[in-house]
Design a binder for these strands. Structure first.
Lengths: 186, 186
DNA sequence: GTCTATAGGGTGATAGAC
DNA sequence: GTCTATCACCCTATAGAC
C-alpha cells in the first residue's frame, strides 16, 4: 500500500474513532507510518485528507446498503436483513458520527458527502417500502417511514455508546421491526 | 451570577456546540469572562468542570421529559406531545451529542450521567406505553418500542445535522407516529 | 477569589535538503 | 516522494503574588 493510501486509511479510522476536531495530522501520520513531508506532499492539509477519507467512507456505506437493499426477497426481508446485519455497534456509524463534529457541519465541502449519503439512503429505503407497500401496515408514508428507520439506526448507535453496550441498539431495532409488523424472526 | 456559575454555564454551551475534545479550558474561561486562576480555584481541571456541566444538562433533560410524560392526557397524547415539542433541532441533543466524544465514552465518571439519562428515559417511556397498551397496535413490546422512540429522536438529530435542515427530523417523528398509529394531528 | 507568569508538550503548516 | 528543521500559536496545568 502506498503512503498516500495508508494516510487515507489511517484518517478514516481516526475520524471514526475521534472525529475531525479530535484528530491531528501528526496522529494520522504516525498510524500511517508516514512523515510530515509525505502527508503534505500528497494533501494540502488536514481538511483535504479528511475530505478524501470521508468520501471514501461514505461511498463504502452506500455500496454496502445498496447491495443489501437491492438483493432478492420481499421488501420486508430486505429491510430486516439490512437492519439486522452484524455491526460494530459500539464504534458507532462512521458517517453519522461526523454530524456531531462542529468543523464538519460548518464546512460545506466536508458535510456534502455526509448529507448525500443520508439523502440517498432515505430515498432508497423509501423506494423499497413503496415497492412492498402491501407487506406493511396500511396507510404508511414511505418517505417518513424510511426516515424513521434510518433514524432508529443512528439513534441506536447513540444509545449503545451511552450505555457502553449493544443492548439498546438491538432493542431499538426490535422496536421498529415490531412496529413494521415484522416478527423478531421473520 | 457567580464566576463559578458562569463557568459551568459556559461549559454547558460549549460542550453542546463542540463536545469535550473540541473545547479548551481557555475557551470556557473566555466565554465566562473568568481568568485561569478563577477556573482552577473552583475546579481541579477541565474534566471536573465538564462533569458538573454534564450532570446539570442531563438533569435538565430529565426534568423536562418527566414533566411532559407525567402530564394529563392519554399515553398517546403525552408521547406525541413529547415528540412534537419544539426543539432546536440543528443544535442536536446536548446529552446525545456527548456519546460521540471519545474522552467522554472512555471515562466512567463522565459517561455515567449520559447513560443514566437514557436508561431512565427508556424505562419512563416504556411505563407510559405499558399504561396505555390498548391505545397502540396489539402485541407491541413496551421496552423495545420505547427504545425505538428514543432512538428516532436521537437519530433525527443526526439526520438533521447531516442535512443542515430540520426536515429529516420532522419526517422521522412523523414516521414513528405513523407506525404507532397516531395520525399527524392527533 | 482572581491575577499574571511560566511550563512542557502538542497543533497545523512551511521550507529546503536529499 | 520523503526527511528534518523550524514556525507561531494553542493546550492544560501549576505557582505564587495580590
Amino acid at each position: 500500500m502506498s503512503a498516500r493510501e495508508r494516510l487515507v486509511e489511517s484518517a478514516r479510522e481516526l475520524l471514526w474513532e475521534r472525529g475531525y476536531v479530535g484528530v491531528s495530522p501528526r496522529a494520522i501520520q504516525e498510524r500511517a507510518g508516514a512523515g510530515q513531508g509525505s502527508m503534505y506532499h500528497h494533501f494540502s492539509g488536514k481538511a483535504e485528507l479528511a475530505l478524501e477519507a470521508v468520501r471514501r467512507t461514505a461511498g463504502q456505506l452506500r455500496d454496502t446498503a445498496e447491495a443489501e437493499l437491492s438483493g432478492p426477497g420481499t421488501a420486508r426481508s430486505r429491510i430486516s436483513a439490512y437492519l439486522l446485519r452484524e455491526r460494530e455497534v459500539l464504534r458507532g456509524c462512521p458517517v453519522g458520527r461526523l454530524t456531531q463534529d462542529p468543523e464538519i457541519v460548518a464546512s460545506p465541502r466536508l458535510r456534502e458527502p455526509v448529507e448525500e449519503t443520508f439523502t440517498w439512503l432515505r430515498s432508497r429505503l423509501a423506494e423499497v417500502i413503496a415497492e412492498g407497500r402491501e407487506e406493511f401496515p396500511a396507510g404508511l408514508d414511505p418517505v417518513a417511514t424510511a426516515t424513521a428507520i434510518v433514524a432508529v439506526l443512528q439513534g441506536g448507535y447513540v444509545l449503545a455508546r451511552a450505555a457502553g453496550s449493544a443492548e439498546p441498539f438491538d432493542q431499538a431495532i426490535n422496536g421498529v421491526l415490531g412496529l413494521l409488523g415484522v416478527a423478531p424472526a421473520d
